[in-house]
Design a protein around this nucleic acid. Structure first.
Lengths: 187, 187, 187, 187
DNA sequence: AATGAATGAGGCTTCATTCAT
DNA sequence: AATGAATGAAGCCTCATTCAT
């Protein structure tokens, strides 16, 4: 299958998938996604070989977007400030894009996502990982495996986001509380 | 008097569902579950009204079992010791029952699980919550919302478990590292 | 299968079947009928070998009851008076027992009812047939085949009943109009 | 431009349904209908949303065809001649299309047919109703409700058809006998 | 390339009937 | 005899994917 031309259409399908999956879960029919994208049933399969393929690419894209959002506007300050900045951006992106967040969460645990996709996705987090490494370099977790620290940090972020989404009126307070907890953990 | 409804059979179906879902995901066919349970296709539906019903009950059971495991053998010592004991038990259960853990994780994010089921399930965590409350009573998070603290703690546990499962050779070290992180966060 | 003893239970099942089929159609589950009869699932099959068997017996019973109702209280008067009396009783039974009527109508067209059952049922109509024969003996249809006359008469009755049920406030007028039409046809 | 939805295929499904239902009753499986139509299992559902939908459309079509058949070739003569012509056509259609007739009869009493479908179908009978109205305008049923008259007439027709189908060798005689009875009733 | 009809393999669930108790 | 659990064959419908146009 040759690379089809219209990137717009591809993007439309991705966006539609995000919306539909957020609403209906991963069981959503490809036909529903195509319709939401304003594209025909069959066209979807000229852009993605397979439903699983679509899912994997969507995962990569969302994860990448999230990572980029977290890292945007970073300036050269001390570790704590950088970390806080990143944390804040991360929370902001998640609360501003609840559908993307929700879909991403579903994809994360889906068995349709390949191991290799998971690995690629982790690259999107490299930047975050770097900051994290520097942040913990002199803290109590300095000797723990990097991946464990990263996993813990990620879990904290996800939990905080979940909590914020459930109680958006106190978003800032929760955001701060989450960060403080994080920093106590690693800083 | 007819053949009475057998608790064994119900349990067999639950166990089979755990195994099959761990292997195939929530999309697993009821027929596959029935077969694995050594029960006929239709019998499954005399024990559970619906596939969703089975899933909800399974969620409740697994969550309950996990909560009970975490709380078993608790003795009246200081908070840190209690918390550590609980943490340890929790990790042990999870690593000893990877399929249950995996299935539980899938159920947790499934949109088939009712809000009311989620609520019931949270009761299984009450005991854990109590210890957690006492543990943080004099710590840095003493003023944070209980639910947020709980969410963070849970996330830390899940992340640690995930990590342990991925690298079981150093289970004890990771378990300890996770707990230290937790304690720094709340203790 | 030996004839089971409790005629009460048999009757209860019949009555339940009448009610359930009136409400749900012939597709009604045997389990639903059993439940309505206050009898267990499996008991139904000690009274009737098969669902089709139940249906056939029910057909026979309802048809017989209807025939008997039509013929009750007949006195030796002239043909027209007898016919009118019968017609009136027939309509009355049908309007007083709408569920039986409705179920009977469904059974009449069902392909589950055997040819031999249909034949047996026709015996229940023998009495009616006799009166009909005498009524038409000197009328315009005196030379038509008896069965055709009977069929036409029956159709007229059914149609009139249908109409009465749909507009019960003018039952008597419709009853009379139907009879007059009948008498013009055969009398 | 995709393969357009084929009217032929739709018609084939309708025809197949007529045949299969005539033979097996309304319980016939959609798969059987699809197979008889030479169409895939799932294709049936691109032409009809639901089995009930198919049934309703089939009812409409058959009823319409029957009504049209009855009214074909009508000329401006007196009422009795028109009525006879119509009656004759009606009988002819029914005897020439026994499967359609049989299926139509099943549908007529099925609870799958919507009230609104029944109403639409009655429009197909409007023409017949008109002739009937003129026919009875000076007869003994001139003051009876139109619907009742129609119901009776219809019942007579159905009964006559049933009888003819059961004894096709004397079709013409029965046809005439039925009509004479009708005319005595209303003319 | 785009469209949407066509395909047919399953999936969930129902149900008549049988069977252990 | 009575009960209701057990069985497994269908049945309706959905859906990813293919294909004719």
């Amino acid at each position: 299958m040759p690379r089809p031309r219209s990137d717009d259409k591809r993007a439309a399908i991705m966006a539609a998938a995000t919306r539909i999956i957020a609403a209906q879960g991963l069981g959503a029919a490809t036909a529903a996604i195509a319709k939401e994208a304003g594209v025909s049933n069959g066209s979807l399969f000229t852009y993605f070989d397979t439903k699983a393929d679509l899912l994997n690419q969507l995962y990569l894209e969302l994860k990448g977007e999230m990572g980029a959002a977290a890292l945007g506007g970073l300036r050269a300050t001390d570790e704590r400030a950088q970390m806080l900045h990143m944390w804040s951006r991360w929370m902001d992106w998640a609360t501003a894009n609840p559908q993307k967040r929700r879909t991403l969460a579903q994809l994360q645990v889906s068995d349709q996502i390949t191991a290799s996709t998971h690995e690629s996705a982790s690259h999107a987090m490299t930047g975050i990982g770097g900051i994290l490494e520097r942040s913990r370099a002199n803290g109590p977790m300095r000797d723990a495996p990097a991946a464990l620290v990263f996993t813990l940090c990620n879990a904290l972020a996800e939990a905080t986001i979940d909590y914020i989404i459930g109680d958006p009126d106190h978003a800032d307070a929760h955001k701060q509380a989450g960060f403080d907890a994080l920093w106590r953990m690693i800083g």
